[in-house]
Amino acid sequence: MFGVIATALRVPRAIVFATWRTGVSAAGHVLAGGGWVPPQVGELGVVVVFCVAYALGRRERGMGVVLAATATAFQVGGSIECGMPELIAPTTRLHIAWLEAHAEWGPGFHEDGFGLLPSDAVDSPTGFAAWVARLLDEADQAKAADADGVRCAYRWIVEGDRVLGGIALRYGFSEFVEWAGHIGYGIRPSERRRGLAGWALGRMLDEARELGMDQVLVVCAADNVASVKTIESHGGVLEGIRGTRFGPARRYWIKIGVPGG
């Protein structure tokens, strides 16, 4: 009877602890600039330390209460998981989430990888649906390529229901590809410094390989140190620097080979 009462008394403490650890994790995420420390990682670390301390204190029964509260907070039915990014095709399901990312960029030519044109009316559901349909059409093998014979596969970098960035693979060669490159990408400001660009670039290089491409051209602003490091980490070899309407740009070629080659 005493054990039941003691365990019941630990429940409120577990709830307080769950609330506290969530706040600590959120603060860590903000201090990291919304960058490389997702909230779940901080939460998991605090939970592990707390549970070890609980075990060393010989309060094994209380650990069960803490773990139950943790599972509830993560809403995964009794297991602890961390969110993982993935690449998906454009979808109307994430209209609101995409607009949030779009607003974070602000005005200007920053959203590489999304295929957004000045004429795209993405604020309204109808306009957004039309834009998404156009993006999907550009990658449809059953439909005609553009006038230059170039197709483009667009992917959004998402984590749960949040849009973190976008990346595009253009296959074929045209005047546009000559100055913009085969692959273009952009990461929303609050999610940079997490390695997302490098991860997404690697995935798109795999897709290019599957399409039979043996090398791709990747272009970035000459002063974009982060993109330079990302491209060079995937074997990018500098061809040179050229002037563009947006300023000097570094041009890299990445050799990727073909499957089974």
Rank of each mutant, 00 (worst) to 15 (best):
I231Q: 01
G236R: 07
D223V: 13
V65I: 13
V41S: 11
V219L: 07
E111P: 04
L87D: 01
G35T: 02
L94S: 02
G257V: 05
I187G: 10
I80C: 09
N224A: 00
W253R: 14
A8F: 04
A53R: 15
M213N: 12
S174K: 00
T19L: 14
L169F: 08
L44E: 04
A144V: 12
M84S: 12
L56I: 14
A200P: 00
E81R: 11
V76C: 13
A142L: 07
H95C: 03
G78K: 03
G202S: 09
I167V: 12
W179T: 10
F176G: 10
G115A: 01
M213T: 06
W179I: 12
R151L: 00
L87V: 07
C82P: 12
G166Q: 08
A147E: 11
E111K: 13
F2S: 11
R170I: 01
A8C: 08
G240S: 03
I167Q: 02
M204N: 00
L9C: 06
F74K: 15
I15N: 01
P125W: 06
D223I: 05
G186S: 15
A26H: 11
G195L: 02
P248D: 15
T126K: 08
W199C: 03
E100M: 07
T92C: 12
I231W: 01
S119Q: 15
T230W: 02
T22D: 05
C82F: 10
Q215L: 08
A130Y: 01
W98M: 11
E60A: 13
V24Q: 11
V132W: 07
A200W: 00
G165D: 00
A168I: 07
E178V: 00
R250S: 11
Q141S: 11
R155A: 02
V16H: 02
I167N: 01
L99H: 11
M63G: 15
I80F: 13
G23P: 02
D112H: 13
A89G: 06
G186A: 12
H182Y: 09
A144C: 10
C51V: 15
D161A: 14
G77S: 06
P248Y: 06
A145V: 01
V237M: 14
V228I: 11
